[in-house]
Design a protein around this nucleic acid. Structure first.
Length: 293
DNA sequence: GAGAGTGTTGTAAC
DNA sequence: GGTTACAACACTCT
């Protein structure tokens, strides 16, 4: 039995879900779809009937949205939002993860299981979502392409160039944090990584975008790019359950420099700067008042 | 036990 | 159009 889950995912976490599902799900055919909570399934009212018999041919990702390509040309879209999780249960798959996560999967479906895909080889894919913000949806290829087109430039993709980054920021007056969180402009950055990127660039998250110097914009660009690359390499950040001995959480949490460090000395300027937590762009925001200007 | 906070995003109002 | 506030929901923490 093997499975993968993360809490409160951003781009690196969604990417970890994608790569962990890839070897198990691609090539598998849906025998039966079981919807336990209607709100989780958007669009197609005949979801179960539509999905039955379809085979997964690829899993792609844009920003935090997952695209499960089907053999009939359609696409199953999946967004985890705040608390969505995929669990893959396969008898013949090697054991991975820690005992507590294995126990978790053994207990599925549970109170938060919203959709179950029974596969023809006997494996099972569970979609859990406590807060019911996430969704899965059957789309045509054209609809999936349209959804993909709403996303802005993305760290890790070729279109994420310094000039495209400058253009995305434009002459906006909103706090840089809000701009970096705007998926239509820059996709994939969530609350954690925006705070981290701002820290790397020595820029306060609440700085008005149009007051940033060219040098600061360049450092933000590098910061966003490097933080996402490093987080993907480490399997993302698992925050709330980071101390669980699942052996399956992302390891980037240890690398966080400001996020969730309110009251602690700044890792860069020491006791001279104490990390502050405030609200910016409607989100919990962390920065060092000493070395971020 | 009440109230605030939670890593996302769509919508509506200014 | 840009910006901001808030709702969607269920749970944990203070």
């Amino acid at each position: 039995m093997r499975m993968y889950s993360v809490d409160m995912p951003e781009l690196p976490e969604v990417e970890a879900v994608r790569t962990s599902l890839l070897p198990h799900l691609v090539g598998r055919t849906v025998k039966r779809a079981e919807v336990l909570h209607r709100k989780t399934v958007r669009g197609d009212k005949a979801f179960e009937k539509t999905l039955a018999g379809k085979t997964f041919v690829a899993i792609r990702r844009r920003g935090k949205l997952l695209f499960f390509d089907l053999d009939d040309g359609g696409v199953l879209l999946g967004h985890l939002k705040m608390t969505g999780q995929f669990f893959y249960h396969g008898k013949k798959v090697k054991t991975g993860g820690g005992h507590s996560l294995s126990a978790k999967v053994a207990a599925l479906p549970d109170a938060h299981t919203r959709v179950i895909l029974h596969l023809e080889n006997g494996d099972t894919l569970y979609f859990n979502d406590m807060r019911l913000f996430g969704y899965i949806k059957i789309a045509t290829r054209a609809e999936a392409d349209a959804a993909e087109a709403t996303y802005g430039i993305e760290p890790g993709l070729p279109d994420f160039t310094l000039s495209a980054f400058r253009k995305a920021l434009g002459k906006r007056t909103a706090p840089i944090k809000g701009v970096l969180l705007n998926q239509a402009l820059i996709s994939g950055l969530g609350n954690i990584y925006v705070d981290e990127a701002c820290f790397r660039a020595r820029v306060r998250p609440m700085r008005r975008t149009n007051t940033l110097t060219a040098k600061e914009v360049e450092k933000l660009y590098e910061g966003a790019k490097s933080v996402i690359a490093e987080a993907i390499a480490l399997g993302g950040t698992t925050f709330r359950n980071y101390s669980d001995a699942t052996g399956n959480h992302g390891r980037f949490r240890e690398k966080l420099q400001v996020f969730d460090r309110a009251g602690e000395p700044c890792v860069r300027c020491g006791k001279k700067g104490i990390v502050v937590k405030t609200v910016c762009a409607g989100r919990g925001t962390h920065y060092c008042p000493k070395c971020q200007k």
